[in-house]
Design a protein around this nucleic acid. Structure first.
Lengths: 109, 109
DNA sequence: TCGCTATTTGGTGTAATGGCCATATAGCCA
DNA sequence: TGGCTATATGGCCATTACACCAAATAGCGA
């Protein structure tokens, strides 16, 4: 049966660009940390435990995707969430993970 | 200020694995098509417009992530969604996109 | 101004991703 | 069985992603 895409190709590309920004453990960790409050790069670097330049690049990815925004304060830069819709994303991911876990346990039995 | 990760490193890795599976335009297109009904590989191949082997590999990625499952029927293989939590994901992505659009329009003005 | 700190940017090596082609596998039917 | 169709897999190549180091940039305080 012939299936038509619901949206245009560029639309899927745009969606994928956002999804890609969400697809790295360090970036997930960062986003979660920004859930409560804005945080400076130095603290995020400690949190992630990677090179500071690496973290800076992850932040650039998140910013480029429109997920976070930054604010300079003197020498320091603070990042905060720009969107408030991430809960749906977390819920989705966690649901999949727990379902996968359940499936795996079923296999073992 | 010292920030503690809320979860373990492997937990973030696991989350990122799921997110990665969602981070490709063809796979997003496929997931959306599977929203309503199960679909065979041949129809998905038409839909995506890539080589059949390419689509097969995308499906393997989705399956590996636990997002879809397959059912053989004779020569054909039908895929369907294994999770029902994707709406939260779509909403999140679309919210970000529309917000980005709004921001862009504000710049032009 | 000088030096110190916070951050970003550029360079480079390496690994992962994704595309297609060719091939393997498997069911179905004559 | 032989041939056709549907799907998966292996190989290869080009591109992208990501890690670290080194260097550039910028604010601040002595």
């Amino acid at each position: 049966m012939k299936i038509r895409p619901r949206h245009s190709r560029p639309r899927y590309d745009a969606r994928a660009r956002i999804a890609k920004a969400l697809a790295h453990p360090s970036r997930l960790m960062i986003l979660e940390a920004l859930e409560d409050r804005e945080v400076c790069v130095c603290d995020l670097t400690d949190l992630v435990g990677a090179d500071q330049s690496t973290v800076s690049k992850h932040l650039a990815v998140l910013k480029q995707a429109g997920l976070v925004e930054d604010r300079k304060d003197g020498v320091m830069v603070f990042y905060k969430l720009k969107v408030c819709c991430l809960q749906g994303f977390w819920d989705c991911i966690e649901t999949v993970l727990s379902q996968n876990l359940k499936a795996q346990q079923a296999v073992l039995r």
